[in-house]
Amino acid sequence: MLQLQLIALYDYVCRCYDRHLCLHFQRQSNNRQPDFTDQELITIYLFGLLKQRYTMRQSYDYIVDHWLDWFPKLPSYQAFNYRLNQVSWQFEVLIDELVHQLQTRPCHHHISLVDSLPIIVSKRPYQAKVARDWADKGFCATKKLYYHGLKLHFVGFDRRETIPLPEHFYFTPASANDLTVLKQTTLPYVEQRILVGDKIYASAPLQAQLCQQQVEMVTPIKLKKGQKRLDAADQLYSSYVSSIRQPVESFFNWLIEKTHIQTASKVRSQKGLLLHCLGRLAAGLYMMAFIS
């Protein structure tokens, strides 16, 4: 069974590699065709995550201990680590492929769920020094936690009582406002649709903008200034909206459980953070598409 999983994963990576010419024109040196290929490199990283090896060292040792005959040209760990960080952008191509693969499944194309997930590099934001060009200080209201890191923004099609099908993903610095990100990245491309989100997306100017695109934003009802509690009808409505958007929370919980994407405390560089985010998201989508 494990052999078949590894073969299927390697075959998928190779087919994706062959379909995208941009992956073939990344090297202009004499080593543009290394004995140990990028396809093998990516397969090992993803297979390690599939087998619950959540660090590169664990993935590498797992292959050495159990699958070395399958990868006879496997380089040293230092070379493996360096090359993986250099090709981390290739996981973005895999993510696009997997999103398109998942969108062939039945779903409600007129209802989309939106939310964000914190990617925590450090819980001491004032002392953090990793990837400052990309990550910064943010606040997670759910955990009541200030942190240094990123946000993963999600837009996905509703499927009723099961995790939604991904449509778009965006990574931003942790300080980015969810409503601003939605306006800049998602709204230009949606029309004739219902968007369901949490209270941060409740905005009268946004509603006016969405009406022009035949889009409705549905959120729980916010307390008005000076109001201590919602009346019974508003509470019932808010509970109903929360039940609709619950599957996106389930998706995030599933992604965290399967890939440990939320915790990036061992990342030491910007390229390492890019690999952590893109690689683990690709692994999660692969599991969702072919294993779960």
Score class of each variant (00 low, 15 high):
residue 144 K to W: 11
residue 145 L to V: 06
residue 145 L to K: 04
residue 146 Y to P: 00
residue 146 Y to T: 07
residue 146 Y to F: 10
residue 146 Y to K: 02
residue 146 Y to R: 12
residue 146 Y to V: 03
residue 147 Y to L: 06
residue 147 Y to V: 04
residue 147 Y to Q: 05
residue 148 H to C: 07
residue 148 H to T: 10
residue 148 H to G: 04
residue 148 H to E: 11
residue 148 H to P: 11
residue 148 H to W: 14
residue 148 H to A: 08
residue 149 G to H: 08
residue 149 G to N: 09
residue 149 G to T: 01
residue 150 L to G: 07
residue 151 K to T: 02
residue 151 K to D: 06
residue 152 L to Q: 01
residue 153 H to Y: 04
residue 155 V to Q: 12
residue 156 G to Q: 09
residue 157 F to K: 02
residue 157 F to D: 01
residue 158 D to G: 00
residue 158 D to R: 01
residue 159 R to F: 11
residue 160 R to Q: 07
residue 160 R to K: 13
residue 161 E to V: 09
residue 161 E to P: 10
residue 162 T to M: 14
residue 162 T to A: 11
residue 162 T to D: 13
residue 162 T to E: 13
residue 163 I to Q: 05
residue 163 I to L: 08
residue 164 P to F: 03
residue 165 L to A: 06
residue 165 L to P: 00
residue 165 L to S: 05
residue 166 P to M: 15
residue 166 P to D: 10
residue 167 E to M: 11
residue 168 H to N: 14
residue 169 F to D: 07
residue 169 F to I: 03
residue 169 F to A: 13
residue 171 F to I: 05
residue 172 T to I: 00
residue 172 T to D: 08
residue 172 T to N: 09
residue 173 P to E: 09
residue 174 A to S: 12
residue 174 A to R: 13
residue 174 A to N: 12
residue 174 A to K: 14
residue 175 S to W: 04
residue 175 S to G: 09
residue 175 S to C: 06
residue 177 N to Q: 08
residue 177 N to L: 04
residue 178 D to K: 14
residue 179 L to Y: 11
residue 180 T to D: 09
residue 180 T to W: 04
residue 180 T to F: 03
residue 181 V to Q: 08
residue 181 V to P: 13
residue 181 V to C: 12
residue 181 V to N: 12
residue 182 L to K: 04
residue 183 K to V: 13
residue 183 K to A: 02
residue 184 Q to S: 03
residue 184 Q to P: 10
residue 184 Q to L: 08
residue 184 Q to F: 06
residue 185 T to Y: 12
residue 185 T to V: 12
residue 185 T to F: 11
residue 186 T to Q: 10
residue 186 T to E: 12
residue 187 L to D: 02
residue 187 L to Q: 00
residue 187 L to G: 10
residue 187 L to T: 05
residue 188 P to Q: 00
residue 188 P to A: 03
residue 188 P to E: 01
residue 188 P to K: 00
residue 189 Y to K: 01
residue 189 Y to H: 02
residue 190 V to L: 15
residue 190 V to Y: 06
residue 191 E to I: 00
residue 191 E to Q: 11
residue 192 Q to C: 12
residue 193 R to Q: 05
residue 193 R to D: 02
residue 193 R to V: 10
residue 194 I to D: 00
residue 195 L to E: 04
residue 195 L to W: 01
residue 196 V to T: 03
residue 196 V to I: 14
residue 197 G to N: 00
residue 197 G to W: 02
residue 198 D to P: 06
residue 199 K to L: 14
residue 199 K to N: 10
residue 199 K to Q: 08
residue 200 I to F: 07
residue 200 I to L: 15
residue 201 Y to M: 14
residue 201 Y to R: 13
